[in-house]
Design a binder for these strands. Sequence first.
DNA 1: TTTGACCTTGGAGTATACTCCAAGCTTTAT
DNA 2: ATAAAGCTTGGAGTATACTCCAAGGTCAAA
Lengths: 138, 138
Amino acid sequence: MYRIGELAEKLSVSTDTLRYYEKHKLLAATSRADNGYRLYNEEALRVMQFIIRAKGVGFSLNEINGLLSIKIDKASHSCADVKSFTEQKLTQVNDKIAELQCFKGSLELLVAACCGGEEEATHCSILSALENVDAINK
Amino acid sequence: MYRIGELAEKLSVSTDTLRYYEKHKLLAATSRADNGYRLYNEEALRVMQFIIRAKGVGFSLNEINGLLSIKIDKASHSCADVKSFTEQKLTQVNDKIAELQCFKGSLELLVAACCGGEEEATHCSILSALENVDAINK
DNA sequence: TTTGACCTTGGAGTATACTCCAAGCTTTAT
DNA sequence: ATAAAGCTTGGAGTATACTCCAAGGTCAAA
């Protein structure tokens, strides 16, 4: 079991963030020590990694709560509910991937086209390439 | 040229958002009409689409400003600056894509495994699958 | 010509997600 | 035994990104 500070360091987040997530029902401590200290197990670590990843790709804490509640709120959802919610999230994720592929393509084009030298960027083809970034993104 | 309301509707954002972006140097109106109304051209439309996409995949307005300033701030950056900044962003984008691929894999697994019926989700295999989501995400 | 829809500005208010602080208890090291 | 580091709570403060409002100008249609 980890104390809050240990888990925080392992995840590169603050202890305040962990307490904030507990207050907002995203992740409760696994248990409490006799002295009242929060204790977290490996499962909690994995859930936090999940939350951090989800945040990184643009899900709000509220949306992440929704994703996590599939797990937590078992009895209150039917299979049909869960399936349709999950399909919806899958569509969202696919859309996000598609957008990022566009960014990736544009940026790769820019990197490939740029001379990388010391002259002013005014004369660098990377900039003209970026000016067409939206066209590329389609 | 579009008036602010027309552009806002085309993009499904509020006019307040467009004025907010102008105030925060993300996108100025292309010009002003004689009556003081903001006017936007097709280029502005494309820049806004770019901003909206970037936001959707988790870039902050500040980061987006950085991306846009490659375009705007030509004379103040060398080619080497621009190239290294762009390569850094590319790494970020690749990381985000990898994370989303994990989500996608997990969610697809869940959708495929779920019966989709009316019974309580307690008995649905989609949930047990989700409990291993972090393992799947690796 | 006047009603309604649209635009202007500046500034205040809100939601989200932290982040910091005070006051105090616990534990570890010297 | 006492200091330093770590934990507790509740609550206040901050950054980001809007969102709304007031007071007023503009414009097209009835």
